[in-house]
């Protein structure tokens, strides 16, 4: 067991940011905390990185208590905060060198760990960190968090503000890191990133809704689901919500996803319904649920009951 969280709670004044959260992360696992902004992900990360004291509950990271053993713990973890937290006025090389020195590590000793990432940064090693693109900044921050070969890596929303190509590269790197035995706890608000984790916890308003593998989550999705589009998407979504009393419809990329609990409406009936409302260019196809569909269902219907 690499991370074990038991009934952790944390409040800021009257606002309860984390409510008795419990989960466990296995060694060498990529574990995703998936949830919208304000769900309590950052608070949970800070507690696990020993930066905040929980109001209640216990947490151990790599066998160390996050409150009592914080000094020893800080040598074993790599932490990448959600906001870019390197020195913008120092160059790429200086930033990396600084963090290596601070952790008493040598770049060359752990170079194998960061090589894949750092080769992309090397052409810019003299450039100030503040002048890097969003994707490059994230890669540099990851290098700095890894330079002392941590046992557990905390990445708080690494995908935010990064272009899709860089995000994909970033995740490829995380998978390679996992291969070297590092446990990775990553948070994100992007549902597509969830599918790349080994296991995910869906979190909302400080509570965990479900913990499962991405595949397990989508497999547990039991409602008929359709992707729909027409020439007037806005009206389409509004109309489809009135299809049956408990039908739901929401935008999903260039389509709208239509959920029909109970499954009483076959495709033909839906098409007929739309035609009667004057929709043109209608496309309707049954689809497999994604993590996002599961999450939306969970948010609406409360904790998973399977």
């Amino acid at each position: 067991m690499s991370i074990s969280v038991q009934n952790i709670s944390k409040s800021y004044g009257p606002v309860q940011a984390v409510k008795a959260v419990s989960f466990e992360v296995l060694e060498g696992e990529i574990f995703g905390l998936i949830g919208p902004d304000g769900a309590g992900k950052t608070t949970l990360f800070r507690i696990l990185a020993s930066l905040l004291l929980p109001d209640a509950g216990q947490a151990r990271v790599d066998g160390l208590d996050v409150v009592q053993d914080y000094k020893a713990l800080r040598r074993r973890i790599g932490y990448m905060p959600g906001r870019f937290s390197l020195y913008q006025d120092l160059s790429v090389e200086e930033n990396l060198g600084f963090f290596a020195n601070v952790f008493g590590a040598h770049i060359r000793d752990n170079y194998d760990l960061i090589r894949d990432i750092y080769v992309q940064l090397e052409p810019f090693s003299d450039r100030r960190a503040g002048a890097l693109s969003g994707g490059m900044k994230q890669k540099l921050a990851l290098c700095c968090a890894l330079i002392h070969r941590p046992r557990v890596l905390f990445l708080d929303e690494p995908g935010t503000g990064v272009d899709p190509v860089s995000r994909k590269e970033f995740w490829d790197m995380l998978r390679r890191l996992r291969a070297s035995g590092i446990t990775i706890l990553v948070s994100t608000a992007y549902m597509d990133e969830a599918a790349l984790c080994d296991r995910v916890a869906l979190i909302q308003k400080g509570e965990i809704l479900a913990i499962d593998t991405p595949r397990g989550l989508t497999a547990a999705y039991r409602h008929p689901l359709f992707a729909v589009r027409s020439d007037d998407m806005y009206r389409l979504i509004r109309d489809l919500r009135d299809l049956t009393p408990d039908a739901d419809c929401y935008a999903f990329g260039e389509y709208a996803h239509l959920v029909v609990p109970g499954g009483g409406s076959p495709s033909a009936a839906i098409l007929q319904y739309l035609e009667a409302r004057g929709h043109t260019g209608v496309e309707l196809l049954p689809v497999q649920a994604t993590v996002e569909d599961s999450f939306i269902d969970l948010m609406k219907n409360g904790v998973w009951t399977t």
């Binding site: 020993s50 800080r74 040598r75 932490y79 906001r83 937290s85 601070v102 008493g104």
Partner: peptide, 13 residues
């Protein structure tokens, strides 16, 4: 302000 304090605190400094 810049958030670097967070990283310094997590370090063994």
């Amino acid at each position: 302000e810049l958030g670097t304090m967070e990283v310094l605190l997590v370090s063994p400094l």
